[in-house]
């Protein structure tokens, strides 16, 4: 598993939404995240997140840092972030599933 790419513009915007949330330093994948499961789970995300541009209300999440993705999903799960669509998506994700998703998206390329 190669290291996550630096967060891009959309990631920075999401990060700002998270306020001063402390981000984990270790990659979840390093702790055995199930990337194949994450790839399956990601199909729920790609309905909306496939073609996003910078100005989109639905950010591109391909290639974002693992820890960042995990923390943002968890923030939706606790409703610290506001969108009900994402709160609903996150509501049923356990920590293992969030780690799997984060590990997958960290290395995933945006669909062509």
């Amino acid at each position: 598993m190669r290291r996550a790419k630096p967060a891009r513009r959309s990631a920075t915007r999401l990060l700002a939404l998270c306020g001063g949330m402390a981000l984990g330093l270790l990659s979840p994948a390093a702790h055995g995240a199930d990337v194949e499961y994450g790839r399956y789970l990601s199909t729920e995300c790609t309905t909306c997140h496939g073609v996003s541009k910078a100005e989109s209300t639905i950010p591109d999440i391909h290639g974002l840092g693992e820890s960042h993705i995990a923390e943002v999903i968890k923030a939706y799960r606790t409703k610290a972030l506001p969108n009900p669509v994402m709160q609903n998506v996150a509501a049923r994700l356990g920590d293992e599933e969030i780690a799997a998703l984060a590990a997958y998206f960290a290395t995933a390329k945006r669909p062509k």
Binding site: T47, C48, V51, S52, S56, T57, I58, N83, P111
Partner: peptide
């Protein structure tokens, strides 16, 4: 208003997911 913008972006997303 945000819902409307989101719906427009959703349309772009799902039609790309369906048709490429």
């Amino acid at each position: 208003k945000q819902n409307y913008k989101e719906s427009i972006d959703w349309y772009k997303g799902i039609t790309a997911d369906v048709f490429g």
